[in-house]
């Protein structure tokens, strides 16, 4: 599913790369940037956490005129006279303006590195609202955000991920260059698909999906025990002979109604009471068969 998402998130998509202290999600984010550049899309990066050089490292061979980095790394809070981008500018109007600056009429992809930084400085409802407006606004084709899950309260992470169409949670793998990605994708119809994959990121930022981790299914007991008859060496008799079985079947069990007994109870014999009834004009007679729901 990871390679599927890399090939292009659908319009209006919102993808979150969720990482934690033990494994950084930035390499995967850069893979997404390079994949979008390879598709000839405009990419706007809001860089709060990494410098421009660090972000461009590895993207040299690509058409970089499509890559627009809005540097908020140097002065994120606007302390100098001419900040490039500040955290206060993270609102719908400003970002739409930014996305429309590019010459191409095609909507661009917005990459946020990282959402955690923004959430530290703006209140979560405002961030959620802005993200939702951007998705619906049409100026941005897709949003890809990096989120450090261990930096925020669980509710905040949950609220942000609740808005996302896809969430990729990365965690360290068994080997040094491998990582595990747990992907949750929500289709527009409400269908949810989940997948867990091991992947590796090459030097040129291509992602290689190594194998799907097997789901902890029902474990097969490997050693087949030879089938043995537990009734072989018994100290008592478990089997019935024909005469014994006959005797067993003759036995009348308590609380068992035989057919004769049932019929005797249902059919009234002579001397018992009967109900005689003559229909009256004022009778409230129900036309419906009261027993039509019975399976008789």
């Amino acid at each position: 599913m990871l390679s599927e998402l890399l090939q292009g998130t659908d319009t209006g998509g919102f993808l979150i790369v969720q990482d934690n202290i033990s494994h950084s999600g930035r390499p995967l984010l850069k893979s997404f940037i390079s994949a979008a550049l390879n598709r000839d899309e405009d990419v706007h990066v809001l860089a709060f956490e990494a410098s421009e050089e660090e972000l461009k490292d590895g993207l040299q061979g690509l058409p970089c005129q499509r890559l627009h980095i809005h540097n908020a790394y140097i002065d994120p809070l606007g302390w100098t006279a001419h900040p490039a981008f500040t955290v206060q500018q993270f609102c719908f109007e400003e970002l739409t303006q930014l996305a429309k600056q590019t010459s191409q009429p095609k909507p661009a992809t917005l990459v946020i590195d990282s959402l955690s930084w923004i959430l530290r400085h703006l209140n979560p409802p405002h961030v959620c609202k802005t993200l939702q407006q951007l998705r619906k606004g049409g100026a941005v084709r897709a949003i890809i955000g990096l989120l450090h899950a261990d930096m925020h309260q669980r509710g905040t992470v949950g609220s942000i991920c609740h808005l996302a169409t896809s969430v990729i949670a990365v965690s360290p793998g068994m080997k040094a260059d491998e990582a595990v990605a747990k992907t949750t994708k929500r289709a527009k119809s409400g269908k949810v698909t989940q997948d867990e994959e091991i992947f590796r990121i090459n030097e040129d930022l291509t992602v290689v999906v190594l194998n799907k981790t097997s789901h902890p299914g029902p474990k097969q007991t490997d050693q087949e025990e030879p089938e043995m008859d537990p009734t072989a060496n018994l100290t008592f008799n478990l089997r019935l002979s024909d005469t014994e079985r006959e005797a067993k079947e003759k036995l009348a069990l308590p609380f068992v109604f035989s057919k004769e007994k049932k019929m005797a109870l249902l059919q009234s014999g002579p001397g018992s009471g009967r109900i005689l009834y003559e229909p009256d004009a004022n009778d409230d007679y129900d036309q419906e068969d009261p027993d039509d729901d019975l399976d008789v």
Binding site: P124, P125, C128, Q132, Q153, G155, T156, S159, L163
Partner: peptide, 13 residues
Amino acid sequence: GSTLWGDDLCCHD
């Protein structure tokens, strides 16, 4: 009660 209503009910304890 979700954040889109401007409510921070879901975000903080």
